[in-house]
Amino acid sequence: MSDASMQQIGWDDFMKVELRVGRVLSAEPFPQARKPAYILQVDFGPDIGVRKSSAQVTVHYAPEDLVGRLVVAVVNFPNKQIGPLMSECLVTGFHDADGNVALCVPDRDVPPGTKLL
């Protein structure tokens, strides 16, 4: 996407998106998902609590490698039904050159619930 075709947003639009840091409490295979995925339980601290998400990160991460890891997620989207799972947040990531998802993560330890600025 070139700079000329990129949609511009205002600061107020950006501030509406609640991108928060959470710590993965558990990661379990999600065999009912259409694409390989894990069901994550993510702790966003006392103000937000624990939320569930489906994450298509099975190529780069084993479930045991995700537990304890910090992730960045959107916590103010409406819940979304994904097969039998009600997803309560969107864990963010980037597609690598092969189209597999690598997580978007902070590079330092920050408290769960911290908002991206």
Rank of each mutant, 00 (worst) to 15 (best):
M1V: 10
S2T: 15
D3E: 07
Q7C: 10
I9K: 12
D12T: 13
V17K: 06
V17F: 09
G22Q: 05
G22A: 11
G22M: 03
V24A: 10
A27S: 11
E28L: 14
E28G: 00
E28C: 02
P29K: 13
P29N: 13
F30W: 02
P31S: 06
Q32I: 01
A33H: 07
K35F: 07
P36S: 08
P36R: 06
A37V: 09
A37T: 06
Y38G: 04
Q41P: 07
D43Q: 10
R51D: 12
R51F: 11
S54P: 02
S54A: 15
A55G: 08
A55V: 02
V57P: 01
T58W: 05
V59M: 09
H60C: 05
Y61E: 04
Y61F: 14
A62M: 15
D65G: 01
V67E: 08
R69H: 13
V71P: 06
V74G: 00
V75L: 09
P78F: 04
G83H: 12
P84W: 06
L85F: 00
M86T: 15
M86V: 14
S87D: 02
C89Q: 04
C89N: 04
G93W: 04
G93R: 03
D96M: 09
A97Y: 00
G99T: 06
N100W: 00
V105E: 13
V105F: 04
P106A: 01
R108L: 12
P111Y: 01
P111C: 01
K115S: 13
K115M: 08
L116H: 03
